[in-house]
Amino acid sequence: VSEWTEYKTADGKTYYYNNRTWESTWEKPQ
Results as ranks from 00 to 15, higher is better:
K28A: 13
Y17M: 12
Y7L: 09
T14P: 00
Y7G: 07
Y17A: 07
T9N: 11
Q30Y: 05
S24A: 13
T25V: 14
K13F: 10
N19F: 06
W4Q: 04
P29Y: 06
T14M: 01
R20A: 14
K28P: 15
Y7D: 03
N19M: 10
D11T: 06
E23W: 04
E3L: 08
S24Y: 13
T9G: 06
Y15L: 11
E27D: 12
Q30E: 14
R20I: 15
Q30T: 14
T9Y: 07
W26N: 14
N19I: 11
W26G: 08
D11W: 05
W26Y: 13
T21E: 07
W4Y: 06
Y15V: 01
S24T: 15
N19L: 00
A10L: 13
W26H: 07
T21V: 05
T21S: 04
N19S: 07
R20D: 15
E6H: 03
E6N: 00
G12T: 01
A10K: 10
G12I: 00
P29G: 04
D11N: 08
Y15S: 05
T14A: 02
Q30N: 11
W4V: 03
Y16E: 04
T25I: 05
Y7W: 05
N19T: 12
V1S: 12
P29K: 02
Q30I: 13
N18I: 01
Y16D: 03
Y16G: 00
P29L: 09
E6F: 05
A10G: 09
S2R: 06
E27I: 11
T14F: 07
T5C: 13
K8V: 13
G12D: 08
N18V: 03
N18K: 01
T21F: 06
W26T: 14
N19G: 09
R20Y: 15
E6K: 04
Y16R: 00
Y7V: 13
T14S: 11
Y17D: 01
G12E: 01
T25Y: 13
A10S: 09
W4R: 01
A10N: 03
Y7P: 00
W26P: 08
R20W: 15
E3D: 14
T21P: 01
Y17Q: 11
T5L: 12
K8S: 10
N19Q: 10
S24I: 15
A10F: 06
Q30V: 14
W22E: 15
K8H: 09
A10T: 03
E6Y: 05
K28S: 11
E27M: 04
K28I: 14
W22M: 15
N18M: 00
S24W: 15
K8I: 04
S2A: 10
D11A: 06
E6M: 05
Y15T: 00
E23M: 01
V1R: 05
N19R: 04
W22I: 02
T25G: 04
Y16W: 15
Y17I: 15
K8R: 09
Y17F: 14
Y17T: 11
Q30D: 13
V1Y: 15
T5F: 07
E27T: 05
K28D: 12
Y16Q: 00
E23S: 05
E6W: 05
S2K: 04
N18A: 00
Y15W: 13
Q30M: 08
P29H: 05
Q30L: 14
S2N: 08
W4F: 06
T9D: 13
K13Q: 07
V1N: 11
V1K: 07
S24R: 10
S24N: 06
E6S: 08
W22P: 04
G12S: 00
T21Y: 07
K13H: 11
Y7A: 10
K28V: 12
T25R: 11
Y15K: 02
N18E: 06
T14Q: 07
D11E: 14
W4H: 01
K28W: 10
N18R: 00
E3A: 08
E3W: 02
T25M: 14
